[in-house]
Every structure is written in C-alpha cells, then in structure tokens.
C-alpha cells in the first residue's frame, strides 16, 4: 500500500492536462522515479490512500499528479479505483471492474468511458427483469457519492467494453479512461486477468440485443 501511495506522487508529464489513475504495476523504472519525487503531495496522497486500501501492495489505482502542476495533486487523488481489473478476451467484448472511491466532499459523476482497444465502450448497470433474469442496460452515469464508493463488479454495474479491435491478454495492462460530467478525465492502467465469470455480460444473443437497445438509447439521447 505504501508503494501504491508513492505512486500517487509519480509524475507522468505526457499526461499533463489529464488526471491519470495508474495501477501500480510492474515497472521498477517508475518506482525508482517515484522515490525521487517525494513531496508534500506524496504525504497527502498517502493519507488519502491509507483510508481506503488494504494490505495488498497492488490493490489501489491512484490518481497521479501532472508533473507541471503539483498544486492539483490533492484534487487528483479525488477519485481512485481500488482493485481495478479488466477481464481478458480475444475478441468481441469485455468488462472492467473495481471499486470507485471518491475522496472528496462532492459527488463525482462518471458519464463515459473510453478505451483505444474498444470501439464501443459504455457504462452499464445490471438489473433484474420481471422474469428474474439479469439484464444489462446502458446508463447515463455512475454517481460516486462524496466520501463514498461505487462498486463495479461482475454481475453488477461495470464498464462495458464492446467492439474490441485487439485482444486483451491476461497478465498485461489495459488503459481505460473515465470521463466525469465536468469533462475531467482519469486514465486508468488496469491489470488484465482471466476470469470465467461475468458470462451473462458476454452472451452473444444478449449482447446483440443490448447493443441494439443501446444504439436506440444513444439515438434518442442525441
């Protein structure tokens, strides 16, 4: 967890202007750089992380402050994704999961998701229909309550990544961007894992139905 917190102060200059959520993954290079950039912001980020992460060192995906503007570091830790991950898939579609955690006193509304490897990324919720079956449907946004969390889980609400244009392989990482209603973006670097569950999410018939439905919704929204 200490490591995760140190990551919060790591500087990623090329993402200036974009708040970067980054899973503390496997790069020693980045770790070393992190130790070289210890600042007050680190301590702030650490204290925030300490509230919400568990023992696993790689458990937390932390906001990373742009190097050129350390004053925003505290704000950049506004949203974290704990234990975030993406299900591996060769083609078709997949999902991303984890616990969104809002460290601020204001609600944060996520209104869209973006990923280079998925042509049609969406925010989905899972509801139970009158027949008792799970149904997925696109939603306009996830509101992460002030000082609260919002669970993204198989069988529950999740980031739906449809129209894969490349394989998403286990043991690699996948970049996914969350966009808030005020335009703020968080780039997540999420570990990819094999997972046999979340089957309902990827059922072919279901997905076609949902995609049709989603398309309709998108049309009507616009």
């Amino acid at each position: 967890m200490l490591f995760a917190a140190l990551f919060a102060a790591s500087s990623v200059a090329q993402f200036t202007g974009v708040r970067r959520l980054r899973a503390p993954t496997f790069s020693k290079e980045i770790m070393n750089r992190t130790f070289a950039t210890l600042t007050t912001a680190t301590l702030l980020a650490f204290s925030l992380a300490a509230c919400s992460t568990d023992d696993a060192e790689t458990a937390s995906t932390e906001a990373v402050a742009p190097e050129t503007d350390m004053s925003t570091a505290g704000m950049d830790a506004a949203l974290t994704l704990e234990d975030g991950w993406v299900k591996s898939a060769d083609e078709g579609m997949t999902g991303a999961f984890g616990t969104l955690t809002n460290h601020t006193a204001e609600d944060i509304e996520i209104v869209s998701v973006e990923a280079d490897f998925a042509d049609m990324p969406q925010l989905h919720e899972t509801v139970t229909d009158s027949a008792g079956a799970s149904q997925m449907q696109q939603v306009d946004g996830f509101v992460v309550p002030a000082e609260g969390t919002y669970e993204l889980a198989p069988g529950g609400d999740h980031l739906m990544l449809m129209g894969l244009n490349e394989a998403v392989e286990s043991g690699t990482t996948a970049d996914v961007t969350l966009v808030a209603d005020d335009g703020t973006e968080w780039l997540l670097e999420l570990p990819v894992r094999e997972f046999d569950g979340a089957e309902e999410t990827y059922d072919e018939g279901q997905s076609e139905m949902n995609m049709d439905m989603d398309s309709d919704e998108m049309t009507s929204d616009q």
Binding site: D55, A56, T58, A59, S170, T172, P191, R193, F195
Partner: peptide, 26 residues
C-alpha cells in the same frame, strides 16, 4: 507468456498471502 504468467502469479500470491483474494476472486 511466461512474463504474463509471472506478473499474474506474483500479484495473486501477494494478495492471497496477505488475506485478500486475487483481483478476480469470487
């Protein structure tokens, strides 16, 4: 593939030994 496997097992092992399940643990 070996590299990917080692990344997965490292993360899974650290989590399991700490009392948390791996990311995908149901």
């Amino acid at each position: 593939e070996l590299q990917r496997l080692m990344r997965i097992w490292t993360d899974d092992s650290a989590r399991l030994m700490s009392g948390a399940g791996p990311l995908t643990d149901q």
